[in-house]
């Protein structure tokens, strides 16, 4: 579904991603793990059109999306839930969700999806007319995910959904990710919480200084002792 070939992204002279290749097939959860500054977020931001690559190819459903604007990419079916959640704190929860469907023209479908989000995240419904800034960190993360689902994406990019959350909430968020996949979503997940992320994903890539060093089925990565020590900080 998503094909990244030989991607090269730089901020000025600082190279953030080089020769990166990555594939996400339909219905998969693919995890990208790696330490801070490895290029995970840069990769996602390039896919969603926020950054322009120096070279390389990104294609989605067989068509190139390099050079498209973020809104065009959302319209093609990729939705990006950013690191740090970035909900609109001064807008209500309902408004945040409506904005997630900003480019959709089917008002009836938007309404149905809104109900679906409230079913999936009951806490959002209870507080739907409150400002999003009043939500706790975990609730804001749920809102961020719900907001990105409102565009009805075929591919969901999730950047560090567990960041800064208490362990119990981390569990909840990962449960949601699994539930989404069971409903047929395709997910590209970036995580520092490698252990959890590998446990729920089908395949994984390890990123180091902007390039893929290891890739394979998640189960193999979890069980590779060398990898556990070297890249995942597990023992």
């Amino acid at each position: 579904m998503l094909e990244i070939r030989n991607l090269f992204v730089a901020y000025g002279k600082i190279v953030a991603v080089s020769k990166l290749s990555l594939t996400v097939n339909e219905g998969e959860i693919v995890t990208v793990v790696g330490s801070n500054g490895a290029g995970k977020t840069t990769t996602l931001r390039t896919v969603s059109g926020m950054l322009k690559p120096q070279s390389g190819e990104i294609s989605f459903k067989g068509r190139s999306i390099v050079g498209l604007s973020p809104e065009a990419i959302v319209t093609r079916g990729i939705s990006h839930s950013p690191e740090g959640r970035m909900v609109f704190g001064r807008l209500t929860i309902t408004e945040n969700l409506k904005l997630g469907a900003y480019n959709r023209k089917d008002a009836a479908g938007v309404k149905i999806d809104m109900e679906r989000m409230f079913e999936m995240f009951p806490v959002l419904e209870q507080r739907k007319s409150q400002r999003a800034g009043t939500l706790s960190g975990g609730e804001q993360q749920m809102l961020a995910i719900a907001r990105s689902l409102m565009s009805r994406p075929t591919l969901l990019l999730l950047d560090e959904p567990s960041l800064g959350l208490a362990p119990l909430l981390v569990e909840q968020i990962f449960d949601v990710v699994v539930e989404l996949r069971n409903e047929g979503a395709t997910i590209l997940l970036v995580e520092q919480n490698a252990n959890e992320a590998l446990r729920i994903s089908d395949r994984a890539y390890v990123l180091e200084t902007g390039t893929v060093t290891v890739e394979g089925p998640s189960i193999e990565l979890i069980n590779n002792p060398q990898l556990r020590a070297a890249y995942l900080g597990l023992d």
């Binding site: 609109f88 807008l91 408004e95």
Partner: peptide, 17 residues
């Protein structure tokens, strides 16, 4: 609504389209 969202976080506004 789009103006208020953009005013709060321009990046997030672009990201959601």
């Amino acid at each position: 609504m789009a103006m208020r969202a953009s005013s709060e976080n321009l990046q997030a506004a672009r990201l959601i389209g």
